[in-house]
Design a protein around this nucleic acid. Sequence first.
DNA 1: CATCGATGTGAGTCCGGTCTCAATCCTAGG
DNA 2: CCTAGGATTGAGACCGGACTCACATCGATG
Lengths: 368, 368
Amino acid sequence: MSAEGARRRDVTVADVAKAAQVSKAQAARALGNYGAVSDEVRERVLAAAEALSYRPNELARSMNTGKSHTIGVVVGDIENPHFGLATRGITDTAKKAGYNVILVNTDEDRAAEVDAVRVLLDKRVDGLIVAPASSVDTGHLQEVHKSGRPLVFIDRTAGGMPVETMAVDMARISREATQYLLDAGHRRIAFISTLRTETPYTPGMTLESSQIADRIDGMRGAFLESGLPFPEDLVRLNAGDEDSIRSITREVLRGPDRATAVVASDGLIALSVMEAIQELGLSIPADVSFLMYDDFPWTRLTTPPLTVIAQPVYNMGVAAAKALIRQMEGLPPAAPAQFTATLVRRGSVGPCRTEGDPDREELAARLN
Amino acid sequence: MSAEGARRRDVTVADVAKAAQVSKAQAARALGNYGAVSDEVRERVLAAAEALSYRPNELARSMNTGKSHTIGVVVGDIENPHFGLATRGITDTAKKAGYNVILVNTDEDRAAEVDAVRVLLDKRVDGLIVAPASSVDTGHLQEVHKSGRPLVFIDRTAGGMPVETMAVDMARISREATQYLLDAGHRRIAFISTLRTETPYTPGMTLESSQIADRIDGMRGAFLESGLPFPEDLVRLNAGDEDSIRSITREVLRGPDRATAVVASDGLIALSVMEAIQELGLSIPADVSFLMYDDFPWTRLTTPPLTVIAQPVYNMGVAAAKALIRQMEGLPPAAPAQFTATLVRRGSVGPCRTEGDPDREELAARLN
DNA sequence: CATCGATGTGAGTCCGGTCTCAATCCTAGG
DNA sequence: CCTAGGATTGAGACCGGACTCACATCGATG
């Protein structure tokens, strides 16, 4: 009955109009549900559209409404469940409000991020949610912001830009976690992160990641508060791949002045660190205490279950999307949300093993 | 120096042309790098574009090229690392070829999938990669396919549609895994899946998911081959949320005729199943053997490390994207890829505990 | 010096919608 | 019966690029 369908061109309003015997304008009005259309025409047009199975071309629509109903999301690595969850929060919320999400991965590479932002802007997304790879080098983000396009940061800030940011107060939770370790008697606490830097960590250095900087600050703060020297030599960055994480872990846990507690900067690192610890024949928490950022379901299944810093990642995603949508719709920003990470005490942190310490038992009890 | 920037309209070719004192056509040619343009004009145009920081409007471009350089990806749940990894494979590959990805989550809900496909089509994506929520109800996918738009399935097939599909041979690996359990002496093997069904599992029933159907077939095959009766009562579907997984696990592990081995259909289920097992005070693998689909890094960290069925998920994502790109570029399909899952024997499967069985030691040794 | 093909170039159309504007219809009020 | 004002309707502009077509220009060939 229908055309042979060999050369298939999409059905357009013009086609529908012709079929319904009305002008293109009328058909468009009936279809788009705007302007004045008589019931009779509307019916005829709708019927024709149905018959031809007409579907509007969103590209064309976007072109002259200026709205694409699409938001761009730029993250470091979707493979990391941390971002997976955040992304889920974003897409769930966006979908409810009628927006779609274009997702771009940057591998935490600034050049890739610059590119991603450019591409998304070229595609005329209505807004952007970015987890900035660098909080220092933010020219491209500044431009987005200056251009007036809605923008929200998630997970990290970027160079003090006045942009709504959904992130937890890292310094606070880091200090709390460190204090917890200090209370357990640990003094040599290592911190291992993938953050790429030119040179090894030195105290006043500028770090690209606000998150990591805050975590280290938090640790230092806790040490200082307790009047203890902060073990800078145990802050280890550039823990890129499995091998480097392994060797860093070994280094840190060796020698007379070895670390007695290790803090892993994220779940991915944690895996390799724990493997390295197992390989060294050390046991958690008897020989080394272990703490990681992010609470994933599997952390309850290890032996011992891991003590972690839980972040409300999904909710941060939801909040980021909501904030962006408000911006896109020209509403005033809501009261800034406060996200608090919590220290979930499970079994991987124990009292510091100081050979022959009589207080150990008592400490263990106190830590519960 | 520049305009007040109050009302900001994007810079267009026309603007650039005016600034460079050439016609719009010439400017477009210089910018788009096509047609004939004198060096002098090109230079002037490029300079003007730079000065005005002109960026092409991809929407407009897509409109008359008909290509959006965007592909749509429809999956059940990005939060599940299984899809997280696959998505990563897709986006990595797409990006390399100059395509962007619009990601939509369906929560394994068919209505959501139908909607997602429609929206993506309306946005004129150049192609679609779908993990079909149902292999039965595939009208919307049929239409996509008939309309000639490039389409690739990942992870699952859909009603025998002649569409390139990147998935592992589930029946084969399921049979192998089941055989492994049978060899260990297990006869009561439970299979727990989230798959939603109207009624509890009964032998010949039609399952929405080709994957799950294949897995069950594989199990049955292994039993039959060994001349053993397939324990249909232990096939448990509808393990939706944590609570139902827990109670199903408890049910299955209770009573005189309890299961001695449990197979979890994916990593998310596995978590709850294992917790339920721990709560029951049973230990793996002494009391219950445990096997799960998908190999995630954390499975090596549990005690014991888990025996799993590893699927080349990332590669499937890569292959799906590559296949789609070939289709979109009008190339003939490459030879169909074969993805093989592998049984990774770690420590969660042990000999079946038959009270007072003298062979147990020997079996344990053989399973190593 | 006339001719021809290879550039260069500008005017204008098209993609598929949205939307403005002026013309046409209709109906109630005067 | 005539007319003002709202409801309908069609023609056409427009969004921002890509691309066609007709019209120069120009050096090389005969």
